[in-house]
Computed example of a mutant assay.
Amino acid sequence: MRTRKLCCLTVVTAAAVALELAALPRAQATGTVASGGPEPLHVVRPGQSIQTAVELARPGDTIELLPGVYRENIQITTSRLTIRGAGSRTVLRPAKKASSNACGKAGHGLCVTGTAQQPVTNVRIQSLTVSGFPKNGIWATHTDRLRVRRVTAADNGQQGIGQEMSIRGVFVRNVLRGNRESGIHLVNTNAHEAGAIDTRGAEVAGNRLSGNGLGVVIRRLRNLTVEQNTVLGNCGGLFVIGDENRPRAGDLTLRHNAVLENNRLCPANERLPAIQGAGIVITGSEGSRVTGNQVFNNRGSSPMSGGVVLFNSFVGVPNTKNEISANVLNGNGPVDLADRDRGPKNTFTDNVCGTSVPAGRC
């Protein structure tokens, strides 16, 4: 009798296991496991393909990357995905032969790509390193609410993290170092002339940017905040770039950043003059606020050198209606505060500095 009970129990247990396996997320096909939480969890180990997990994932899924080096290019076109690594122990690097997807063909490391008609929404990328790609470490196009957090983007050929034609992005607590052009580069579009995009409250906050060409570049955008970043040892620190297109670039807030010793030399190229010792540079902006920043020891002899510099846009459009207030500037050269384009209705109040052009701006 006892033997029969054990036999029957074994049959019932096997049937229960079969039913449980049938109910697991389809991510199990790649050897991943369910989290037991509210969303399926795809676990990827070194030697496995991140891209395969991305293609199997559905909106709401999380892809967890275990510690190790992954050599591939990742293309994300699905909304509401989370890519989560193990901090500095999870590293994405180029393969000997780039992936055949669009991201690999472009030379980027990890891409999030939507369309004007159907943006990719609510993708989260966090806690990994993206390093050594010929173009951009992370590049996003047509996204809404992209969040990049605790990512290190280092030694990439153009931008560490870049985004275009996107809104409501959040970039917080990242480390950007040694990227050839800029650490963080947010733009309406690099492909053609267009007016500024209203980002609807995008945020760049709490990042550390060092040894890049430029620290943060905001080009042809509106309604965005750059705050509490440490920008150290680049050719230039924070750059706001506008031009004659409408809507005008502007309505930006740059506040409580530490912009220090950005004294590397970036030689002139076909788009920019030589840049060295440029702290915060505002060109062609309308109605932006630069307030409460600490800007120390940015020194050089290029046209945009100095602590906080208002400069004509590269097509000659002046800054207008910008507010420069309550900044502390010291040791910048040739001056701490420079109003070099004399655009209309810019105001300078309560700044603590030693030198300005014209005199009296401190």
Score class of each variant (00 low, 15 high):
residue 1 M to A: 15
residue 4 R to N: 12
residue 7 C to F: 11
residue 8 C to K: 12
residue 12 V to E: 13
residue 14 A to C: 14
residue 15 A to I: 14
residue 25 P to D: 09
residue 29 A to Y: 02
residue 33 V to F: 13
residue 37 G to P: 10
residue 40 P to H: 02
residue 42 H to T: 05
residue 51 Q to Y: 09
residue 54 V to R: 07
residue 55 E to Y: 02
residue 63 I to G: 05
residue 71 R to A: 14
residue 73 N to G: 05
residue 76 I to P: 03
residue 81 L to S: 05
residue 83 I to W: 05
residue 83 I to T: 11
residue 91 V to R: 13
residue 94 P to Q: 05
residue 98 A to S: 15
residue 99 S to N: 15
residue 103 C to R: 02
residue 111 C to N: 10
residue 122 N to M: 04
residue 126 Q to L: 09
residue 133 F to E: 11
residue 134 P to Q: 10
residue 155 D to M: 06
residue 155 D to S: 09
residue 163 Q to F: 02
residue 163 Q to N: 07
residue 163 Q to I: 04
residue 170 V to N: 01
residue 175 V to C: 03
residue 178 G to F: 03
residue 184 I to E: 00
residue 186 L to P: 00
residue 186 L to S: 06
residue 187 V to A: 09
residue 190 N to I: 14
residue 191 A to N: 14
residue 195 G to I: 00
residue 196 A to R: 05
residue 196 A to P: 01
residue 199 T to P: 08
residue 212 N to I: 02
residue 219 R to L: 11
residue 221 L to K: 11
residue 227 E to W: 05
residue 234 N to V: 05
residue 245 N to D: 13
residue 250 G to W: 01
residue 250 G to F: 04
residue 250 G to R: 01
residue 252 L to F: 03
residue 259 V to Y: 10
residue 265 L to G: 08
residue 269 N to A: 06
residue 273 P to D: 15
residue 275 I to F: 07
residue 278 A to T: 13
residue 280 I to F: 10
residue 282 I to S: 05
residue 282 I to M: 02
residue 283 T to L: 15
residue 286 E to R: 13
residue 286 E to W: 11
residue 288 S to W: 00
residue 289 R to F: 04
residue 295 V to C: 02
residue 296 F to K: 03
residue 297 N to M: 10
residue 298 N to L: 02
residue 298 N to A: 08
residue 302 S to Y: 03
residue 302 S to M: 07
residue 307 G to L: 10
residue 310 L to N: 06
residue 314 F to Q: 03
residue 314 F to M: 14
residue 316 G to K: 12
residue 316 G to E: 08
residue 317 V to M: 14
residue 320 T to E: 14
residue 322 N to S: 08
residue 331 G to W: 00
residue 332 N to F: 01
residue 335 V to Q: 15
residue 335 V to I: 12
residue 339 D to R: 03
residue 343 G to C: 03
residue 344 P to A: 14
residue 347 T to K: 10
residue 351 N to G: 12
residue 351 N to Y: 08
residue 362 C to P: 05
residue 362 C to Q: 08
